[in-house]
Design a binder for these strands. Structure first.
Lengths: 155, 155
DNA sequence: ATATCGGATGTTATATGTTATCATGCTTCT
DNA sequence: AGAAGCATGATAACATATAACATCCGATAT
């Protein structure tokens, strides 16, 4: 991968700029309307010279560290973060029919969870909250469910 | 060929008894103090003649269908259910230090989640709530964290 | 009894997901 | 220039999960 590589570190060390691959992956995640697996991403990037899983995983790691992406545990897939400000304690509403994922935040839920945990002396460092079901758009429709997952077949 | 409709199994047998393998796996899960992966289980069962992943996964499927076991998404592992009555909407507090998992229930959290979802027209069929952190016992201790996962080495 | 069906299992192979390791090269700091 | 740090590349291994197809068994219906 040839880097155009912005020669400007300028801003002090706290966060170095994202690499080309990292930006690319964040783009792909943002444009996808549904979570993408590491292999989905790899598939889309092969034509651009990325051809090994570790590259993808490393980029995802970085993006998650910076709060720019989330991992959806129950799908083994990744999405871009809508609201990069508060990256802790996000919850996701995943439509099992059309595959869309809505990032949801509710302070009460957070508070309640913290409360419940604290009551038993448990100290929470990270919460995974994933709601599966049907989104508003899909709720009326027939429930014979569809693919809801990237296929990877080149269109 | 579409079958012409099976002639009604009398009283739809609500639950046939568990098979030997299914019982065995439920046992193993109950005795383990931490979640076991499908391959952990397979390892323990090889000496008993079970030697292929599908068998294990199929048994787990059944157990989960009956609400006797849960899958911990963030660990890709399984635990027996403490309270087989209400198998929906359970939450788990997972100690990343010692590996224990506490099944937690709190009606307020459930209500809140349902609420949040409903507000946006989302219909929840299954919720995954997994809290990672340190349990009361481990909270004071040094945070240099340990294995917290079955090794599979022969005991 | 016999045909049949559903469920569970076995067997083999493969798909999907994730990580370790080692090598290389670029950028920045000194 | 040299050292440190980080991103990448390449290869391989490991871990997790499912597909496809065959067999077996027990319950039923005819």
């Amino acid at each position: 991968m040839p880097q155009p590589r912005p020669p400007l570190p300028a801003l002090a060390a706290p966060a170095r700029p994202l690499s080309a691959t990292q930006v690319r992956i964040l783009d792909l995640l943002s444009q996808a309307q549904r979570p993408l697996s590491a292999y989905d991403l790899l598939g889309k990037l092969r034509s651009e010279g990325v051809n090994a899983p570790p590259t993808v995983y490393r980029a995802l790691e970085r993006l998650m560290r910076e709060g720019l992406a989330h991992r959806i545990e129950s799908l083994n897939a990744f999405i871009a973060c809508n609201m990069p400000h508060h990256h802790d304690l996000a919850a996701f509403a995943i439509c099992d029919h059309c595959g869309t994922v809505a990032e949801v935040r509710d302070t009460d839920v957070e508070a309640r969870l913290g409360h419940v945990a604290a009551r038993s002396g448990f100290h929470v460092t990270k919460a995974t909250v994933e709601l599966h079901g049907h989104c508003a758009a899909c709720s009326g429709k027939a429930h014979g469910h569809a693919s809801a997952r990237e296929t990877g077949h080149t269109p």
